[in-house]
């Protein structure tokens, strides 16, 4: 049976079992290998993509449920939040092995799009589904704050630290 969806702005029509998780369609059928397999059960976040702008674990998203939806992967992530996250990730050399980082970056972009100046608690909440065995968490947190500041300017940063002090 054929399934239609848009990935990174491009329309695709695929002949696959509609139960096939998006992850394997991206990786095996579309050659978009930036989205990673880590657990297959939505526990590690390595496969995080955006579906209509919201973070989603591709390993448990049946392709049949995504007809007509907009899928964005690490390869196609764009806009000011994506660029800010990439820049701070590079500036701090956040990744080590990098395998989980596509998922980390996609979760971080989604967080910043929703919450422009996230608190530490916001970060805990938004990023808790993304496991990093290299344990780059300290730099991820720092990079998210830094990306927020770079988008929002100094005002945003001040708000964030005030919010932090209030707790």
């Amino acid at each position: 049976m054929s399934v239609k969806l848009r990935v990174n702005g491009q329309a695709h029509e695929l002949e696959v079992d509609p139960e096939t998780p998006l992850l394997w369609v991206l990786r095996d059928h579309l050659g978009l290998s930036g989205t990673k397999y880590g657990c297959g059960v939505a526990q590690c976040g390595a496969c995080t993509v955006h579906v209509d702008g919201a973070p989603r674990r591709a390993c448990v998203a049946p392709i049949g449920s995504l007809a007509g939806r907009q899928v964005t992967t690490i390869e196609g992530a764009s806009g000011p939040h994506a660029e800010a996250v990439r820049a701070t990730w590079e500036g701090l050399d956040v990744p080590q092995c990098g395998y989980c980082q596509a998922g980390q970056v996609m979760s971080a972009i989604a967080l910043l799009e929703r919450v422009p100046t996230p608190s530490d608690q916001d970060i805990d909440h938004a990023m808790s589904g993304n496991i990093c065995r290299c344990a780059t968490y300290v730099r991820i947190r720092r990079a998210i704050h830094s990306a927020a500041a770079s988008i929002g300017g100094q005002a945003g940063q001040a708000e964030a630290s005030e919010a932090e002090e209030e707790r």
Binding site: L32, T35, K36, T73, E75, P95, G98
Partner: peptide
């Protein structure tokens, strides 16, 4: 010196073992 791999990683580039085709 900044990492040689990180600019690729944040763009979904680079080839891990699982990515070989």
């Amino acid at each position: 010196v900044p990492s040689l791999t990180v600019p690729k990683i944040v763009r979904g580039q680079g080839t891990f073992g699982v990515d070989v085709r």
